[in-house]
Simulated assay, not measured.
Amino acid sequence: MAIYTLSDIYIYPIKSLGGIRVNETLVEKRGLQYDRRWMLVDEKGNFLTQRKFAHMALLQVELTDTGFLVSHNQQKMAPLQIPFEANDEKTKLVSIWNDVSFAFEVTAEANAWFSEALGMPCKLVHMPDNAMRHVDPEYARPNDLVSFADAYPFMMIGQESLNDLNSRLAEQLPMNRFRPNLVFTGGSAFDEDTWTEFTIGDTTFFPVKPCARCLVTTINQETAEQSAEPLKTLATYRTQNNKVNFGQNLIHNGLGTTLKTGQQLEIID
């Protein structure tokens, strides 16, 4: 029987900006601690995404003792420090896909920094703990919540699945093209497609829907340059119901538990 090991954990504190690899993190109701709890919106409150603004990839995020440090890969701008603590002075309704949620506007300083960095007016908002954004009930339970992630608390990919894709490409791609939360080693390509329940430590996960891939996978996360790959190749063997699938979306049981790289995945069903 194959042995599956959690090899990488990623969080993306600000939606559509750079991710952070961590060795351990807490599991919360909406997913991993700090994951996509912040988001950039336009003047109307609509979320900003690399799908429309590829240069968002140039903004990188680092974890510090008191919050996050955001910097620009190409522009000479002083980094922006964002504290963990939410500022509840300004409440704002924001839109993400078909959902509307209330959020807190972080600071005027953050708004100005991101507006300059991206070359367009925008605001940074934070999702408070009492915001209720639900996972699609067609694939989840009524009380399942999600942050500003596209739709689900977690997304997972097996390293062998990426290895399989890279074996078909002229140029190898890193895992950051696919922005997973959890990466595991072991087994065969696309084993994750066959699971309905597994555990990591004290947390139980349920793969509920394949992850349909979008244009973000075609954006180089270091340079913001775009190409046809990997969607062109994935479409030849990973298309189902007119969608290109790669990775699995997860819901979960188990709050306040810790995930650590090196833990084993136990396949239940």
Rank of each mutant, 00 (worst) to 15 (best):
V22W: 11
E28D: 10
A108T: 15
L63N: 03
L32F: 02
W38R: 14
T49M: 13
A86T: 03
L32N: 00
G19S: 13
R37C: 10
S71T: 12
L69V: 09
E109V: 09
V61I: 15
P79Q: 06
F114P: 02
F102K: 11
V41Y: 02
R21H: 15
K44F: 04
T25A: 08
W113T: 04
Q74M: 05
Y34L: 14
A112Q: 15
D99L: 03
A110E: 04
L17H: 11
G19H: 12
R21Q: 15
T49E: 13
K52L: 14
A117P: 05
I9M: 09
V70F: 02
R30Y: 01
E85D: 14
L63A: 05
L6Q: 11
V70M: 03
E62H: 10
G19E: 12
L69D: 03
V41G: 04
G31L: 04
A57F: 04
V100N: 14
K90D: 09
L59P: 01
F84H: 13
Q75H: 14
V106M: 12
E105K: 08
G67M: 08
Q60E: 10
T49P: 02
R51I: 11
K29S: 08
K92I: 11
S95N: 09
Q33Y: 05
N87L: 00
E109M: 07
W38F: 15
L80Y: 02
G67Y: 13
Q81Y: 02
N73K: 12
N98V: 03
A57L: 08
Y34I: 08
F102P: 01
P13E: 15
S115Y: 11
L40M: 10
E62Q: 14
F47I: 01
I96E: 04
A110D: 05
